[in-house]
Simulated scan of single mutants.
Amino acid sequence: MLCATRAAAGAVRRQLPVPDRLHAHHSRRGPLRWAPEEVRRIRPFLHCPMQLAEPDPPTDGTLSPPSTDTPTTAAVLARLPRSAVAHFACHGSNDHTNQGMLHLHDHATAPLTISALAQTDLAQPRLAYLSACGTANPGTNLIDQALHLTGAFQLAGFPQVVGALWPIDDRQAAVVTESFYSRLTADGSGRLDPDQAASALPDTVRAARDRCPAPPSLRAGHLHTGA
C-alpha cells in the first residue's frame, strides 16, 4: 500500500500527492504473479509511496498475526482518509448481492465492501485505481439500481476512479497501469495530475489495442468513472 499524510498529500501544486497503494498478491484465488511488477512500474510516478503488501505464506504452515504493513481491511480504512491517491492490486469479486469486495488479507472475515467504504470520511481524495477483477460489475439482483465498488469509491469522495467490468489479465493489468500513470504525467512537469484520468484511460486502452489487437477483452474491461 502506498499512502500519504494529509500534509504531504496536500502539496498537489508542488509535487505528486502521495498515493495509497494496496498490493495484496495472495488470496483464496491464488497469487497474482504480476502484482509486484505492477508496483515496481508505478513507483517512479509516485512521491514517497508507502506500501501495504501481503506477506509470503509461511513455510512451516504456522500463521502469524498481521503486521502494520499487512493490507487488512482495518489498515486500509485507517489510511484512506489521509490519502490523495489509492491504488489497489489484488483480487476482486461481486457476490451478486451488490456487496462487491476487494480481497485483502482478511477478506474472509472482514471484507472491504461497499458498505464498509461508505462509512469512511475522506479528507483529500484525488484518484482511486482498482486493479482488481469485477470492481465495476454491479451484479444482477438490482441491476437498474446497482452500486459497484468503482462507483462506491466515487461516492465516498474520490472524484476519479478506475475499475474493471470483468476479470482482467494479471500481466496486462500491469502494462495498462504503467501506461495510465505515465499519461497522468505527460505535461512534462513530473507531477501526477489525477484530473487527466478521464482522457488518460481511453488513450491507454487505444494504445494497448494498437500493440495487440486481439483479444479485446484483455484491455476493454477497464472503466473510468468521475468528472
Rank of each mutant, 00 (worst) to 15 (best):
T68F: 11
T97K: 12
L46G: 00
G61I: 11
E54G: 01
P125F: 01
A86R: 00
F88K: 00
Q119K: 14
T72N: 02
A89F: 02
M101S: 09
H87N: 12
G61F: 09
G92P: 01
T97I: 13
P65N: 10
P49D: 02
P44K: 03
L52H: 02
L104F: 06
V76L: 01
V85Y: 03
A110T: 14
S64V: 12
T120M: 05
D60C: 07
G100W: 01
F45C: 09
R41H: 13
P66H: 03
Q119H: 14
L52M: 11
L46K: 02
H47A: 11
P71G: 03
F45T: 01
P81V: 07
Q119I: 06
A86F: 15
H47V: 08
G100Q: 03
Q99K: 14
D60W: 10
L112C: 01
P66W: 01
D106I: 06
P49K: 02
D121G: 10
P55A: 06
P58H: 13
S83G: 09
A86G: 08
L46S: 03
P125S: 04
A53E: 12
H47C: 10
H47Q: 13
L112E: 00
D95H: 13
R41I: 09
R41D: 07
C48T: 15
T73W: 04
T68L: 14
R79P: 01
H105S: 07
T120H: 09
I114K: 01
M101W: 11
P44N: 08
P55W: 05
A78D: 15
E54F: 07
D121W: 14
L127Q: 00
R126W: 09
A108M: 13
N94Y: 12
T73I: 08
L77H: 06
A78N: 11
G92I: 02
H107G: 02
L102Y: 08
D56W: 08
T113M: 03
L63R: 15
P66A: 04
L102V: 07
P66V: 04
P81D: 08
A74D: 10
A108I: 08
P55F: 04
N98V: 13
T62S: 09
I114S: 02
P57A: 08
T68P: 08
S67W: 03
A116L: 14
C48S: 15
D106R: 03
G100E: 01
L63V: 15
N94L: 11
R43W: 09
E54L: 07
P58S: 14
H91E: 07
S93I: 06
F88G: 02
Q51V: 14
T73D: 02
S64F: 10
S83C: 12
S64I: 10
P111E: 03
R126H: 14
L77P: 01
R126N: 05
S93L: 13
